[in-house]
Amino acid sequence: MLAGALPVVASRAETEPVVLEINGRVPASRRFTLADLSALGITHIRTSTLWTDGIRDFEGVLARKVIEAAGVPLTGKVVARGLNDYTATIPLSDFLDYDVILAWSMDGVPFTRRDKGPLWIVYPRGAHAELADERLEHRWVWQLAWLTLP
């Protein structure tokens, strides 16, 4: 197990592991299972990435819905951190301006920890030419497990 990896904590139903924790300026740290995230609404994005071939279908939840569910206004920024300790600071305005998702599958295949899972931040770059800017690619955090609101 990776040092500092997200602990496997049972959900309210005691059946599913936590895949995302939101902390920082939240009323209380929030932990989400895939079922919790799915309950917020499932969204698909068909887009290309620098790391995959062709147009792919990503399934996940809108990032803004997750932040709102944590009880935090969409102002300021968020620090996204993966299980591999990669971090990126992302303006929360991205989540308002674009349908950014926290994806858990690509082309119907769930992500694993070996393949960008449990979650991958995916931007709808196919729908917005300005998102194809390579200077924004660092925001596509994979193995996402934490969002910290400073």
Rank of each mutant, 00 (worst) to 15 (best):
E59P: 14
G60R: 10
G60W: 13
L62M: 13
L62S: 15
L62E: 15
L62I: 11
A63P: 11
A63D: 11
R64W: 14
K65P: 00
V66Y: 04
I67D: 13
E68I: 11
E68P: 08
A69G: 06
A69W: 09
A69R: 04
A69C: 08
A70L: 06
A70E: 09
G71F: 09
V72L: 13
V72Q: 15
V72I: 11
P73E: 13
P73R: 14
P73L: 14
P73A: 15
L74C: 06
T75I: 14
T75S: 14
T75W: 05
T75H: 12
T75M: 09
G76R: 09
K77V: 07
K77Q: 13
K77C: 05
K77I: 01
K77Y: 10
V79D: 03
V79M: 07
A80N: 06
R81A: 12
R81M: 15
G82R: 08
G82I: 09
L83Y: 04
L83H: 08
N84G: 04
N84H: 07
N84V: 06
N84D: 15
Y86Q: 11
T87S: 15
A88R: 11
A88V: 05
A88S: 15
A88Y: 11
T89L: 03
P91A: 12
P91K: 08
L92N: 07
L92M: 15
L92V: 09
S93H: 02
S93F: 02
D94Q: 06
D94G: 01
D94K: 01
F95C: 08
F95H: 10
L96A: 05
L96K: 14
D97C: 00
Y98M: 04
D99P: 13
D99C: 01
V100Y: 12
V100E: 04
L102A: 04
A103Q: 05
A103P: 10
W104E: 00
S105C: 02
S105W: 00
S105K: 07
S105G: 01
M106R: 14
M106V: 15
M106E: 11
M106K: 10
M106P: 00
D107A: 01
D107Y: 02
D107R: 04
D107F: 02
V109N: 07
V109H: 06
P110K: 00
F111L: 03
F111S: 03
T112D: 03
T112V: 02
R113V: 15
R113G: 15
R114S: 12
R114H: 11
K116D: 07
K116P: 12
G117D: 07
G117E: 04
G117A: 02
G117C: 03
P118T: 03
L119W: 06
W120V: 09
W120K: 10
W120S: 08
W120C: 07
I121F: 06
V122Q: 02
V122P: 07
V122K: 00
V122Y: 02
Y123S: 09
Y123P: 12
P124V: 02
R125K: 07
R125L: 07
R125V: 03
R125Q: 08
A127L: 13
A127Q: 13
A127V: 01
H128F: 13
A129R: 04
A129Q: 11
A129G: 00
A129V: 13
E130M: 01
E130H: 04
L131P: 04
L131N: 02
L131M: 03
L131G: 03
A132M: 12
A132N: 12
A132I: 08
A132E: 05
E134T: 11
E134F: 00
